[in-house]
Write a protein that binds this DNA or RNA. Structure first.
Length: 462
RNA sequence: GGCCCCAUCGUCUAGCGGUUAGGAUCCCAGGUUUUCAUCCUGGUUACCGGAGUUCGAGUCUCCGUGGGGUCACCA
């Protein structure tokens, strides 16, 4: 069974890049009928917070991603890590190093001065004398000093590291006894049964160290997939400074989770020429072998397009619900269907949709000067008066077609084009040019409101 | 700097030795529309450079250049 994981450290919100690797992991597990598990890497007490964990869970919930089984918290697993450290110590695969931080620093500086790689020199590797007083030892693992470590990566292919280039006896437990990252990641992944690791390729250079731990502990090495980074416009790793990188910001801006997921799945992954993927299709079609090898630049143009697409395809009753978050309550509005049908075609976000709806629902409190100048030429006012008279005389105005007939009558009688009446009427009703069909607008606001807006505009512009 | 990864339109990408190098987005033009948007049609734009292998290279090899990642008693 395929078991994948997402293992964030809760230092803040769920990041776009994190979400993408989480999504890939989720899809791959689901496709294989496996499990996708969540592990919170909260060992750095200074930087982690419970709120951050909740924020991540909230984002997952919004997107409909759900982890299988209980969430693992590293902070609760000290005893487990200690057990495996003791085991390595006992087996002679790890040892206590009494070198002080100062000594280590001095060694490092000397090596750098000699243009050598900064590297622990292994001085306590085979030490069996009397330890120096007053130094709490760290635990170091015995890493190979020669030979190659090969990572058989599902995205990058075979990546070979020379042990002498990159390895030294790295620390697996600090002086205070707490285990370090590469050690706990390995122990947890192994114990949790993770056999396919999909993560950012910034972890690729950690992988040999983790392999050293896997082998020392006698665990199976999982299959790794190192997914290329998402870069900002400057081509650097995406960070908080690059605008919206918090997934939940997109919810606030009026993006749909389907659009977000579809957008992210296509960043670094593709399936032929297909652009639109439902969750079901993603699960069916996703395969990490189709992940691109090169980094991509974060650019949300396509997200807007996708979002517009998904808004168009969202049923109106669902839109009504979603729009509650954008200060628009249409629940009991009798023309909500007409309104939403007209607006969902032209909104890129829910926020935009809400704003456009309000522009129709509320009478304009100003008139776009450029629009006025363009529309109020010739006998515009006379035409509007004629229309108003017809409006007042008419009965049974309900549907857009009812209003359309009304406009038609004026057009026919006066022998003018639709634009002659449409443009000035638009100014009256909406305060500007552009927007949905006028028949639709009038059907939404009704006869009385239409009349009022025409009068109001005539008074203001005459 | 050492090590590692990467390199096709502005952006996301297809391509897996033989294609007029395809799609999407963006942008532009035309059509539809009383207007705007949607929608439809069309258009501009790309194989980082150099050697080699081959009858033939975007595709394979090497070198260069460029970009990125990583080098902690952080995760």
């Amino acid at each position: 069974m395929v078991v994948t994981r997402f293992a964030p450290s809760p230092t803040g919100y769920l990041h776009i890049g994190g979400l993408r690797t989480a999504l890939f992991s989720y899809l791959w597990a689901k496709k294989n009928g496996g499990k996708f598990v969540l592990r919170i890497e909260d060992t750095d007490k200074a930087r982690n917070s419970e709120e951050a964990t909740q924020a991540i869970l909230k984002a997952f919930a919004w997107l409909g991603l759900e982890a299988d089984g209980a969430i693992t918290y590293q902070s609760q697993r000290d005893a487990i890590y200690k057990k495996y450290i003791d085991q390595l110590l006992k087996e002679g695969k790890a040892y206590k190093c009494y070198m002080s931080k100062e000594e280590l620093e001095a060694l490092r500086e000397e090596q750098i001065a000699n243009k050598q790689r900064a590297k622990y020199d292994g001085r306590y590797r085979d030490f069996d004398g009397t330890p120096p007083a007053g130094v709490e030892p760290v635990i170091r693992i015995k890493a190979p000093t020669s030979g190659a470590i090969v990572v058989n990566d599902g995205v990058k292919g075979e990546v070979v590291f020379q042990a002498e280039d990159i390895l030294d006896d790295f620390i697996i437990a600090r002086a205070d006894g707490s285990p370090t990252y590469n050690f706990v990641v390995t122990v947890d992944d192994a114990l949790m049964g993770i056999n396919e690791v999909i993560r950012g390729d910034d972890h690729l250079s950690n992988t040999p160290k983790q392999i050293v731990v896997y082998e020392a502990l006698g665990f199976d090495v999982p299959k790794f997939y190192h997914v290329p980074m998402i870069h900002n416009q400057q081509g650097k790793k995406l960070s908080k400074r690059d605008g919206a990188t918090d997934v939940m910001e997109y919810k606030a801006m009026g993006y749909l989770p389907e659009a977000m997921l579809n957008f992210l799945v296509r960043l670094g992954w593709s399936h032929g020429v297909q652009e639109i993927f439902s969750m079901q299709e993603m699960i069916e079609l996703f395969d990490p072998k189709d992940i691109n090898k090169s980094a991509s630049i974060y650019n949300t143009e396509k997200l807007d397009w996708l979002n517009a697409h998904y808004i168009k395809n969202t049923p109106n009753d669902q839109l009504v619900e979603l729009l509650h978050n954008f200060d628009l309550v249409l629940t009991s509005h009798d023309k909500k269907e007409v309104l939403l049908d007209a607006l969902k075609e032209r909104a890129k976000t829910l926020k935009e949709l809400s704003e456009m709806a309000k522009e129709i629902l509320n009478a304009p409190n100003e008139y776009d000067p450029k629009g006025v100048k363009k529309a109020f030429k010739g006998d515009a006012i006379e035409i509007l008066e004629t229309f108003k008279a017809k409006l007042q005389a008419a009965n049974n105005l309900h549907l857009p077609t009812d209003y359309h007939h009304l406009i038609e009558e004026v057009v026919n009688e006066k022998e003018i084009g639709f634009g002659k009446i449409g443009q000035p009427l638009r100014i009256c009703l909406l305060g500007k040019l552009g927007g949905p069909g006028l028949d639709v607008v009038m059907a939404i606001i009704g006869k009385e409101e239409t009349r009022k807006r025409i009068e109001q505009a005539l008074k203001a512009l005459a």
